[in-house]
């Protein structure tokens, strides 16, 4: 150790500790550096009108509608499978009987069944 260094350490007892801490300081790892720079990367550009936008509309609205239809169909199959008992047997109240008769009037010519509610009986 030089005299100058020794004098400095005598006047500042922390000097050697501070020097050591500076020399042993943690370094920014390449991985963390890359992550930080990557976070400054370009934000997604706003979507322009045109085929891309139409595709987005189709996928967002039409396809979700189709998916809803498929789900409803599957739910109907499941209800039919687990509930073999005719719905009419559930004794609908009188006010509902009138409503069901209107349904018959509409569906019979369309699907050719006398009473869809009696199917399976």
């Amino acid at each position: 150790m030089t005299t100058e260094e020794s004098d400095r350490r005598d006047s500042d007892p922390l000097a050697a500790f501070l020097e050591a801490a500076r020399a042993e300081a943690p370094q920014l790892s390449p991985g963390l550096r890359a992550r930080i720079i990557g976070q400054a990367g370009p934000a997604p550009a706003p979507e322009a009108a045109g085929p891309g936008r139409l595709r987005g509309w189709l996928s967002g609205w039409v396809l979700s509608g189709l998916a809803g239809g498929v789900t409803a169909g599957l739910a109907g199959l499941w209800v039919g499978f687990v509930l073999p008992m005719p719905v009419a047997a559930l004794d609908a109240p009188l006010w509902m009987q009138d409503a069901l008769s209107y349904v018959d009037m509409i569906t019979m010519p369309l699907i050719g069944l006398d009473d869809p509610l009696l199917m399976g009986m």
């Binding site: 801490a21 943690p26 370094q27 920014l28 963390l32 550096r33 720079i37 990367g41």
Partner: peptide, 21 residues
């Protein structure tokens, strides 16, 4: 991206040391 790298190299190592201590 080169500007982001320059600012990262200028600031992040110091902040890392400060936070670690």
């Amino acid at each position: 991206q080169s500007a982001a790298a320059a600012l990262t190299d200028l600031i992040a190592p110091r902040v890392l040391r400060y936070a670690a201590r």
